[in-house]
Simulated scan of single mutants.
Amino acid sequence: MAQPRVLLVEDDALLRRFVRMALEELPIELLECESVAGALQILGTAPVQLILTDLMLPGASGVDLLQQLQQSPCLRGQAKVVVLSAGLTQDTRQQLAPLGVWRLLEKPVSVGLLEQCVQEAVQGDPPAPIPPQPAPADLERTNAIDQYFAGDTELFQLYRGSCLLQLPHDIATGDQAVEDADLPALRRVAHSLKTVLLTLGAPQLSAQARDLEQLCHSAAPGPAHSGWLVLRVALAHWIDVQKTGL
């Protein structure tokens, strides 16, 4: 019997990596794309049982995707839709209400909650019990491992290693956005960093990224550019410190 197909629509490579690692033990076929156009192309080839989508995507948004699926039900078929986003404000929840969303998950999401959601969507099985894991000395890292990785220190370390490879590229993207005076691009970088850094146990850096995202959203180029310079210095230092622990 063919495995259930799950479509992940997420433009952030690190978050796709997180989902992939979280779900690798489940008997599913995980399909990945970075945009609404890519999602529609996949859905046009064969049905899926579950669609996991972010809201902030390059070009058309996750809301646009849901609206297109509502207008073309043959593309969606019987698939359940889960929105996985860091932007679930009350207004956003009201906007999503009539669009047939099965469940909302707030980023950063824990491994256990993500596994449970996917299992219930494609199998209806209860989640497997999560065994306790020894905690590292760092309290913030311990909290992140417990909250987002179900206590799985090895999974956290694998994800952290992937992030340390990707984060310098994110810094370069942010630098280019500042050079181009491209606030939407800088906002996307901040939006991604906000979630990734919280997942990695760096809440203060995450808060700085959240503040930068808000500055970009308010179209304040001067403060936004200054906020990026402060964040990038702190982030570069944090990366150096983290690398000594690999």
Score class of each variant (00 low, 15 high):
residue 122 V to I: 07
residue 198 L to V: 00
residue 175 D to P: 02
residue 212 L to E: 07
residue 202 A to S: 00
residue 195 T to D: 12
residue 212 L to R: 03
residue 10 E to T: 00
residue 56 M to K: 06
residue 13 A to V: 14
residue 89 T to H: 11
residue 54 D to E: 13
residue 239 I to Q: 12
residue 175 D to L: 09
residue 163 C to M: 12
residue 208 Q to W: 10
residue 235 L to F: 10
residue 194 K to N: 09
residue 155 L to Q: 03
residue 68 Q to G: 05
residue 194 K to I: 00
residue 128 A to S: 15
residue 152 D to H: 13
residue 226 S to I: 04
residue 39 A to L: 03
residue 178 V to S: 08
residue 34 E to L: 00
residue 48 V to A: 09
residue 155 L to T: 03
residue 142 T to S: 15
residue 212 L to H: 01
residue 77 G to N: 11
residue 201 G to E: 02
residue 24 E to F: 04
residue 167 L to R: 00
residue 129 P to M: 12
residue 234 A to L: 08
residue 55 L to T: 07
residue 96 L to P: 05
residue 30 L to W: 03
residue 66 L to V: 01
residue 216 C to E: 08
residue 57 L to E: 12
residue 97 A to E: 15
residue 76 R to A: 09
residue 111 V to Y: 13
residue 127 P to A: 15
residue 161 G to C: 08
residue 167 L to H: 04
residue 210 R to K: 11
residue 28 I to M: 10
residue 23 L to N: 06
residue 58 P to S: 05
residue 105 L to M: 13
residue 49 Q to K: 08
residue 184 P to K: 12
residue 139 L to A: 12
residue 77 G to R: 05
residue 60 A to L: 11
residue 15 L to C: 01
residue 26 L to W: 04
residue 98 P to E: 05
residue 201 G to L: 02
residue 194 K to Q: 14
residue 78 Q to E: 14
residue 10 E to H: 10
residue 149 F to P: 11
residue 222 G to Y: 03
residue 213 E to I: 00
residue 203 P to Y: 08
residue 56 M to L: 10
residue 148 Y to P: 02
residue 168 P to D: 09
residue 34 E to P: 00
residue 82 V to H: 07
residue 55 L to Y: 04
residue 75 L to F: 04
residue 207 A to N: 09
residue 13 A to G: 07
residue 64 D to W: 05
residue 208 Q to N: 14
residue 84 L to I: 06
residue 99 L to V: 10
residue 44 G to Q: 06
residue 156 F to Y: 15
residue 151 G to L: 06
residue 191 H to F: 10
residue 181 A to I: 01
residue 100 G to F: 12
residue 238 W to N: 04
residue 78 Q to I: 01
residue 63 V to I: 15
residue 219 A to V: 06
residue 34 E to C: 01
residue 204 Q to C: 02
residue 2 A to Q: 07
residue 160 R to F: 02
residue 39 A to C: 06
residue 229 L to Q: 15
residue 143 N to D: 14
residue 115 E to A: 07
residue 90 Q to W: 07
residue 33 C to L: 05
residue 11 D to N: 13
residue 225 H to A: 14
residue 29 E to C: 03
residue 77 G to K: 07
residue 150 A to M: 01
residue 93 R to Q: 10
residue 245 G to C: 09
residue 80 K to P: 06
residue 113 L to C: 05
residue 158 L to G: 09
residue 121 A to Y: 08
residue 246 L to G: 11
residue 196 V to S: 11
residue 99 L to W: 13
residue 182 D to A: 11
residue 131 P to M: 09
residue 154 E to W: 08
residue 246 L to P: 04
residue 236 A to K: 06
